[in-house]
Amino acid sequence: MHKLMSNRITIFWLVAPGFMLFLFMVCLPIVMSAYYGTTNWTGIGAYDFVGLDNYTNILFHDGVFWRSLLNALLLLAATLLIQHPIALLFAIFVTHAGKLEKWFRAIFFIPAVISIVVTSKMWVSVFHPNFGMFNKLLEGMGLSAWKQDWLGDPKLAIWCIIVVVMWQGFGYALLLYYAGLQGIPKDLYEAAELDGAGRVKLYTRVVIPLLSPMVRVAVVIAVTACLKQMETVFLMTNGGPANTTQFIGNYLYKTAFSSSLYGYGNAISVVFVIICLILTLAMNKAFKKDVGEF
């Protein structure tokens, strides 16, 4: 058995295909990016090496980059503080919905399966100042004064984007928590009830702590998703007005393809990857500490 399990040739054949593909499609491009990031290439023709200029510019002189990062963190905060608690609450509600349990679970998840291209276009229409649903709704309620140019207002636009992203991801978060709830032994509820613990107490004291492994998974997924956010912004505002809804993914695309700063765009993506790495490592450290407590 042991011999079989440490056969190098077998291991090679098991690991090589996936690993090679990963190296080739994920790591190699990053190395290439790091290389192009040291040039002033415009995407066409010859280029010069500019050393680390691009990188220092990003870190110290590029307001838009930091704004993009800030937006990602804002989105992350909203996701963790608003979307996730609601998703958890509704996951609990859904388990009590009786016959309709499956239906609710299905309906809540629907936005997550619809193409982002469709949902973005749809939301742009919903926010449209003239025929959009939001303004019509306000008008219908006699609140015309509250009508807004939702996506055109530099202060509001980012919140609109956050609402849309949270809306689309809601079902996913809910399903994760719902899955976590399914994993909790039924006896526990009964035992707790015998104890005379109220429902609220039951959940806050017993169930939610038991869900913590699931919370961890959900948080990791949320962090990666928020940092990587691009599609929704790309399709709804393209970062505007005036870069107030910019996210790094979209910014690097715009820099490389609209401003033709290909080298700079590549440098952005390298810095981006590094920031993601640091955040993940920090997160891992934090969670490892957590584990000890349970």
Partner: peptide, 8 residues
């Protein structure tokens, strides 16, 4: 992020 690999 998948977008970081888009250009290369």
């Amino acid at each position: 992020p998948i977008h970081a690999t888009l250009l290369p």
